[in-house]
Simulated assay, not measured.
Amino acid sequence: MTDQAPASTTAAAAVKLSCRNLWKVYGPRPEYYFDTSGYAIDVPGLAERMRREAHVPAVIDVGFDVHVGETFVIMGLSGSGKSTVARCLSRLVDASHGEVMLDGEDLLAMSPRALIDVRRHKMGMVFQNFGLMPHLSVIENIVFPLKLQGIPLAERRQKAERVIELVGLEGREGAFPGQLSGGQQQRVGIARSLVVEPDVWFLDEPFSALDPLIRRQMQDEFLRIQRVLRKSIVFITHDFLEALRIADRMAIMRDGKVVQIGTPTELILNPADDYVARFTSEVPRIRLLQAAACAVPAQGDLSALPAVSADGMAEDLIAQLAKNPDGLAARDGSGAVLGKITPASLITALAALGSEADHDAS
């Protein structure tokens, strides 16, 4: 299993979800600032003006795209606005201004009935609070969204059994939430969100309430599920190491604004400012390397060497190379050999990454 989301082709993928000029303002008259018949939006000074006039701009002029099959992570410290953005995207909270498009449809312009239909059929949501109904069994919790859709019992159970297997809860179908561990309860929440087969999956700090060992196991499960389903995902976290493991691209927020968007490697090697640099300063450079970057052209027959996935992470190779100093064969998803990884080639790749980081810093 790889330790990071597989390399994405998001640059070429279609846009699934997007937002433009998104604002969420709390206060007595937030709509006043967006009356375009009387005022043009002066972004540099508008947020400060709102604060002076007893308003709280929680989300300030945010814009980005989420591509088909992409895991897009939004991260920031507490109060940065990341969860509010996710709630505006799903319209759990109504934005004060802007545009949110899902498959080309403006969610902010939808009627309540149309929005309910979209939520029931196109969106899945998982939160830090598992939100399970304690009087319902595992399978009853999972099928609840399908019951709301009016899907027949037999079909509900068939769909539920598929996602129960996907999240590894076989044999626990009849258990109640109080009989499950925290990790198992979160798996139920994940299964419930997936049973509707959503187009877009929102996860708001879904693992932060779990202890570190269970949290890493759930990250592994998330990566495994995403490799199978390739959903378009908006994932909220305050943990950069978690984001590093799962993100195709990520946005870092501060005080309601998006500071920088890019791949984890881009953010680490080319931080936009000191704030982003502080977020990424403790990340070991080896966590940026995939196995493919450590491979050298194959010489001769490599069939006798242990195989590793080319999209696996370099840090996972250390223990394997210690046991196999002659090297490892890096193979792609089809099993084709891409090259040989040796202790020397791993060190060379790490040195090159360090040189690139030093060059960018200078």
Results as ranks from 00 to 15, higher is better:
173 E>F: 05
211 D>Y: 06
6 P>N: 05
27 G>Q: 12
221 E>I: 03
337 V>S: 11
358 D>R: 10
217 Q>T: 11
52 R>T: 13
216 R>C: 06
29 R>P: 01
232 S>H: 02
180 L>K: 04
60 I>C: 12
154 A>V: 15
39 Y>I: 15
106 D>E: 13
134 P>C: 08
269 L>P: 09
28 P>H: 14
166 L>Q: 04
75 M>Q: 09
164 I>G: 05
207 F>D: 02
120 R>L: 11
87 R>N: 10
254 R>P: 12
122 K>A: 11
161 E>M: 12
8 S>L: 08
340 K>T: 09
190 I>D: 02
36 T>S: 10
207 F>H: 10
150 G>S: 12
115 L>V: 08
16 K>F: 04
31 E>T: 08
149 Q>H: 01
218 M>D: 01
250 M>W: 03
278 R>S: 15
240 F>A: 00
341 I>N: 06
263 T>N: 04
87 R>T: 10
259 V>L: 02
261 I>M: 02
304 A>E: 06
225 I>S: 07
123 M>R: 00
294 C>V: 06
251 A>M: 07
279 F>I: 00
215 R>K: 12
30 P>R: 04
268 I>W: 04
160 A>Q: 01
9 T>A: 14
29 R>C: 14
23 W>G: 13
109 A>S: 13
198 P>S: 03
184 Q>Y: 06
225 I>N: 04
95 A>S: 11
118 V>R: 01
286 I>P: 10
150 G>Y: 00
54 A>Y: 11
278 R>L: 07
340 K>Y: 04
25 V>F: 10
124 G>K: 05
331 R>S: 12
192 R>K: 08
192 R>S: 00
103 D>N: 15
94 D>P: 03
